[in-house]
Amino acid sequence: MAMLSGWHRRMCEEDFKLMFGLFWSMRALATALDPKNPTKQQMGAPMRIGDGCSFNSFRTSSYKLHFLESPSGLKFVLTTDPSVGSMSEQLQYIYASLFVELVVKNPLYTPGEPFLFEPFSAALNKYMRTLGLLS
C-alpha cells in the first residue's frame, strides 16, 4: 500500500494484508472460472502479472471497489458508492496521466515506498471532482 486517502475507518497493517490476499485470490478465482479460456493452468500454479483473467471491480450492498493492476504489479484501488458505473478508463487515466507523470517522474519517489506528494494529491482531488465523485 503506497498511498491511501479517504477511508472512513482506520486501517491497520492487518487490513492491508487481508486486502492483498483478497485481490490475489480474486485474480486466481477469475482465472480459474474464466469461461473463454479452454487452456487453463492448474489452479494454484504461480501466475505472472497480467496472465490469466483479471477482475475489474466488485460490489457489495454498501460500496463498490474498482481495481487496476499496472504491468509492473502496482495495484490501484478505488472505492465508491455501489451505484457508480465502470471506472476502468478513469483508473487507467489516474495511472497513466497522474501517477506516472507526478509520482514516477518525481526524483524523490522510491518505487515500493509510501509517498505523499502534494501535486499528485491535488491533481487527484481535482480529477475526482471533475468526475463528480467528490464534493
Binding site: 472512513h8 469461461p35 473463454k36 483473467c53 477482475f55 475489474n56
Partner: peptide, 20 residues
C-alpha cells in the same frame, strides 16, 4: 464485508472480471 470503507456492508453481490 470486513474491509468495507463504510459500516454494515453485505458480502459481494457482483464481481466483474474481464470475461465474465
Amino acid at each position: 464485508a470486513q474491509l468495507s470503507p463504510v459500516p454494515d456492508s453485505s458480502g459481494i453481490q457482483l464481481m466483474q472480471a474481464d470475461t465474465f
